[in-house]
Design a protein around this nucleic acid. Structure first.
Lengths: 219, 219
DNA sequence: TCACGAATGAACCAGATGGTGAACGACCCC
DNA sequence: GGGGTCGTTCACCATCTGGTTCATTCGTGA
């Protein structure tokens, strides 16, 4: 923290830091209260700068929201990019991917909340965003190659594609975080209870693997 | 419509109808724009009455939102109550339940959106609601009995309970609707495309059944 | 050291927004 | 048919909120 920067004091001017701080605070606020629910004044107040800066850098509330959303998506962009599952047995590879996704979602609840919020707005902001192109390719392609290997060796069923499998994995992980509160209120179970974490992680792996390997060659 | 009621004209006084109309319009507005995003004036405008009526019946914006939420939950309350799967083979029973849930979620997108919204608010409204007690019992109990039968006959695995299985089913169904827009934006696939409906319905059944029946007795 | 643009601060504003007071008209019961 | 209550209308308000104006300060290259 602060190492290597010239520090004549503490309240130096620092465009990047100011911008980053606004973005960080805004991320939390939007994730907590939604686009309409978040207050520009409130975001500014939680920053070491003023509302003026917020408009200086992001132009409008929507502009800020979009920046938050894009940063969130950019942050997860490289997830599957540098994971190497090519050398693993297909089922082990699938399990590696479910584990990876599971851990990732658990580590980024704000991202999931932002996605929920963006869905309420019919993804109208994301759709116009510049981060979109090529966002999902890595994840799907890795999964696609694994499925192809599994199918080729007669292990996996052939009536699903990578997008479908990705959907199941996402559904499980997203639901656990996104619907945590109503689920807890209605069913009395906290899906994010650390004590249950391993159980759910294994469950997701089993779920996907068993589905993919089911009844292949019989019936 | 209007049959059986005394009709001296059209604009008679009708408390129930007015109340119901407000609730219907509010449901759509809240589901579309969220609690903070929905505008009281807008809701009133889409009604044949005025904003004052809205406050007359529901007291406040939050009161209206809560009423909407409660009505939505009440509407699904009896889902599993009158389905009879006791006489079915365990796997058939599971499939019947996944189908039932699948169809139900598909038929009530507004409900799912409201649940998403309520989760953004940490379920704080639902938690204080009077519809909560006993809301989930039917669903879980039916599922629980089916699982017990499956386990007893050596068909099903025994390391999951009814709540977990319910979670998986809900996750799949909810995700398809709740995250439709971002999923489509990022992956280019419309999960609600009617052409894919049967595929997903079968997929959910397979997913749960294969998971439950996997590796039982071996390993 | 001077000039100039980037960065910042504080007050300010117009319109939107949730909410209300009170009178009024219909319907029902006696 | 008259009184009271429920349902409804209309005008009105205090405040909040996104957004802006204007002036100022800081850093830096000439």
């Amino acid at each position: 923290m602060g190492a290597g920067r010239q520090t004549t004091g503490e309240k130096q001017r620092d465009a990047v830091r100011t911008r980053a701080e606004i973005l960080a605070v805004a991320t939390e606020e939007f994730a907590t209260r939604g686009l309409a629910g978040a207050r520009v004044d409130e975001i500014a107040a939680k920053t070491r700068t003023t509302k003026r800066m917020l408009y200086y850098y992001f132009g409008s509330k929507q502009g800020l929201y979009l920046a938050v959303l894009e940063q969130a998506y950019r942050g997860i962009r490289a997830l599957e990019q540098d994971v190497d599952v090519e050398h693993l047995h297909p089922t082990a590879a699938v399990r590696a991917l479910t584990d990876l996704t599971f851990d990732h979602h658990e580590a980024h609840p704000d991202f999931i909340r932002l996605v929920s919020i963006e869905n309420i707005h019919h993804a109208e902001h994301l759709r116009t965003s510049s981060v979109l192109p090529g966002l999902a390719e890595p994840a799907v392609e890795v999964l696609d190659r694994v499925l192809a290997r599994g199918r080729a060796s007669g292990l996996f069923r052939d009536d699903v594609d990578a997008v479908d499998v990705h959907m199941v994995i996402s559904a499980f992980c997203v639901f656990r975080t996104a619907n945590r509160h109503t689920f807890h209120a209605v069913l009395g179970r906290d899906m994010l209870d650390p004590a249950r974490r391993d159980h759910y992680r294994r469950m997701l792996g089993d779920l996907v693997v068993e589905y993919l390997t089911a009844h292949v060659g019989r019936d």
